[in-house]
Computed example of a mutant assay.
Amino acid sequence: MHVILLGASKGIGYQVLQSLLSSAGSGAEQQQDQWSTTLLLRKPELIEQDATIRPYIQQGRVRIVKGNATSEDDLRKCFEGVNVDLIISSIGATPSFTLSGIHIDQPELCTKGTIALLHVLQDYQTKETQAQFPLPRLIVVSSMGIGDHHREIPFAMRALYSWLLTKPHQDKLALEYLLRRSSTSFPTPDPSSNPNAIPPESWLPQSTVHSIQSDFLPRVTIVRPAMFGADGPARPASQLKVGEKAQVYFVRRSEVARFIVDECVQKGGWVNKLPVIGL
């Protein structure tokens, strides 16, 4: 089983990487169930020098491609020589707080990354035989409160989200719109019934949208975490709420990573769903 991980140098992606690599035992009967990975990293040394991951690199279970998730050429390198079963993307811009408000280092990272990935996947579909190389499942981390889900979040959080997270949520809105349009199961958001679910032309031009094939991805999961609180060990799963209309406030990155690995990957759940997770 092979997974491409985007955004694995830190946060959710790094914890997913650790969990997948250690999830199968070392016995001969279990080796066929072990995950191997391809990581697309701007700074490979962050993982190459990691004492936890280095043994897996030496075993050949971790392959590193140097590049950027917004580059189609770099993404194509990730598919070379492997049959990809799964893609997990947790890329996102890094916010910093300044006296003038929140500054985002790469405000269009999710938008550009999604465009590039979908271009590569639609080429992958046309160039390979579907019976032999079906399109991989795609799991992407978004955010609670995006588009048509804004009205579902707790009332106390709505003003905070609208004021504090406008720019990063614009980026996530484009990510979700493009994925839902390319999915065979999600309906494309309708501007007449829900204009808030449509990215503005100034952010995502229609010419770009129409460069991407619609209705071709068979298995998509868009994970919508609550607002990230203080990092720490994951709390018991029984304490968390998960559901497409769950009303939650905060979540830890470790809890999102565990949900992705345990519920989405190992149990195969939440295919073609938009689960919200938090406490």
Rank of each mutant, 00 (worst) to 15 (best):
L109N: 00
L46N: 07
V62F: 12
L164N: 05
F259R: 05
F228H: 02
I57E: 05
T184Q: 15
S142T: 05
Q170W: 08
L121N: 01
V82C: 02
A197M: 09
Y124F: 14
G243E: 01
V276G: 05
T126P: 01
G67A: 05
E48D: 00
L138R: 05
N272W: 10
A257H: 00
A116T: 07
G27D: 02
A131E: 12
V220E: 00
L135G: 08
R180K: 15
T188S: 08
L99W: 14
L179V: 11
P205E: 10
Q239H: 12
H149T: 15
G13Y: 14
E48C: 10
V251S: 04
M157A: 06
G67M: 10
Q239N: 13
V248C: 15
T111R: 00
T37L: 15
G67N: 02
S202V: 15
R219V: 12
Q239Y: 00
I64C: 06
R235P: 06
D33C: 03
G229L: 04
A116G: 03
Q34I: 03
K172I: 12
T126V: 13
A131F: 10
L204G: 04
M1C: 13
N194F: 15
T70L: 04
D33G: 10
V16E: 00
K267H: 09
V220S: 02
H2K: 06
A8M: 08
E201Q: 11
E263D: 15
L217R: 02
D50S: 09
H103I: 15
Y124P: 05
D105Q: 05
P195E: 00
V276F: 04
P233N: 07
S162I: 09
I4V: 12
E255S: 07
A51F: 14
P205G: 03
G229K: 02
S9N: 14
S89L: 00
S207Q: 11
Q31P: 03
G113Y: 06
Q30K: 12
L21C: 00
A116Y: 04
I91C: 04
E263G: 11
T70A: 09
I198F: 13
Q18Y: 09
E108L: 13
L160V: 06
P195A: 10
C110M: 08
P225C: 06
P195N: 10
Q34E: 07
T94C: 09
V65Q: 01
P134L: 04
Q106E: 11
L179M: 11
P200A: 12
V251C: 02
V120Q: 01
L175P: 06
Y177D: 03
E128L: 12
A230P: 04
G147Q: 01
I91E: 00
D171K: 03
V265G: 00
Q18G: 04
S214Y: 01
H150G: 08
A93N: 05
S211H: 05
D148I: 09
